[in-house]
Design a protein around this nucleic acid. Structure first.
Lengths: 259, 259
DNA sequence: TATATTTAAAATGTCGGACAAATCAAGATT
DNA sequence: AATCTTGATTTGTCCGACATTTTAAATATA
């Protein structure tokens, strides 16, 4: 502990690896992933603080702080004497960026995939229309830059996927609607994980750039109608790109363009 | 503090008053409301844990757990040596039920009101259409019951507002989309606080029941087109009911029915 | 026997103090 | 001038104790 001051050899250390989470955060992440993955089901009562923290070899304080974080995200609920139990799925804050990322870190179930695309189909075309009406020059610049980097790297590598994420984030930011912007972080995280998931299954054959540029040009031109249509098409193509054998029933019909 | 063991006299105490939050939760609530209300602005560094917990007369542990909860909701970020600072608004999880409730507990700013209605205008008509396509008998029963209680109490009293909230919650639940359902708790909390806000300003003159029944009947009949239209109208009326002097510019035009 | 009351237990909640780790700023060294 | 060292400050972690709440068992009571 003493006299072993680490010398400064590895100064330019490659700390790009991971975020180096604090203890309580990494406990929350592990526990959270176990919960959303179904390992701990709703209604399940976690081990008591003493036992759980003992098994994890951490202090009760750190463990409690982790549980507080999960409770803040609606995943668990603590009561005296009863213990800490996993909440019903309806209580989960599924749009929380962390929760969403945890959900899509594993192999998301078909219904979940479908649910996310459904939400995107509802939100993003209207968001694109709003963005077309309210974007400023900075928004346009960031979006163009993101697309150029996306073209440079392709979405088959991490840098390209990050650019993709930034494009969508900046688009939502251009709506000037704080609630829609708040969806950004969550949905962006999910889409990011999702693209990774797609990549795991198979390299993307089709080039997704053209539909992105179409959305961009519509927004840059301030054409709300075209922006809405372009975004609808972009999401439709993204759905077809998913390595899913068969979407349930007549899914896309039952919802879109009913009128 | 000592030797004053409270006897069990007030056994049947009227604890219906409040939820009797735990210490850490009430600290988080107070701090959170100060943050979202603008009392602590983004970038502001909170007092150190020792000082802050000392001023609040609570232990450092309880204070830290409160901060963890706020961090889980994206309101603050803690770093060693730097301290705990209020995050940028874009980082806030505005759709978190607690955060949303805190925002609308005060006098929400016009832009925020506008943002929420904008989101509802986008989401809820499509949600109503989905609900019409996927609702089951239980959904219909709950929604009918909620509307009947709403008619009985009117939205000018708490019981009526709760019924209103349940109607919208059950509607979103009927979409069978977990992400949309997750919006439930948040949006419902906001609408609830909002109706209270409206009530504070003036008792509602117009009876909101007819448009609710129209949505209900459309969903019960499985008519997606009518459900979408009815919900659009319901929200439009809700907007006109808001005690707002003047909505910014040509707000509703710039967005809806552009095509 | 059935009911009500009391008692005991078990879990989270709160407290206080101590030390560790990280990080920034200023000072010392080369 | 640049680098290294040192120190100070703040959050992070650990530990141990007690309080509070709630459930369940035990006991007394009708």
């Amino acid at each position: 502990m003493l006299a072993t001051k680490p010398n400064k050899v590895a100064a330019a250390s490659p700390r790009l690896k991971r975020k180096e989470l604090r203890l309580h955060s990494s406990i929350a992440r592990d526990l959270g992933m176990h919960i959303v993955s179904g390992h701990y089901r709703p209604g399940h009562v976690l081990a008591g603080e003493i036992e759980a923290s003992g098994q994890l070899k951490v202090s009760r304080s750190a463990y409690r702080e982790a549980v507080r974080m999960l409770a803040a995200k609606g995943l668990v609920q603590s009561r005296t004497r009863t213990g800490t139990r996993v909440s019903a799925v309806e209580q989960w804050h599924l749009l929380d960026p962390d929760v969403l990322a945890w959900v899509f870190a594993g192999e998301p179930e078909l219904e979940v995939l479908q649910g996310l695309f459904e939400l995107r189909t509802i939100i993003e075309p209207e968001a694109a229309a709003l963005a077309a009406a309210r974007r400023n020059d900075k928004n346009i610049g960031v979006m163009r830059g993101a697309l150029e980097r996306m073209a440079l790297h392709t979405v088959n590598v991490e840098a390209g996927r990050i650019a993709d994420k930034e494009f969508h984030s900046e688009l939502l930011r251009a709506t000037r609607n704080p609630f829609i912007i708040s969806l950004t972080n969550g949905v962006a995280a999910a889409v990011h994980a999702l693209t990774e998931f797609k990549q795991r299954a198979q390299a993307l054959k089709r080039d997704p750039l053209p539909e992105h540029w179409r959305v961009f040009h519509a927004i840059a031109a301030g054409d709300t109608v075209e922006a809405r249509a372009a975004m609808t098409e972009l999401i439709r193509l993204a759905i077809t790109d998913m390595p899913v054998k068969r979407w349930p029933e007549n899914w896309t019909d039952s919802r879109l363009m009913q009128d």
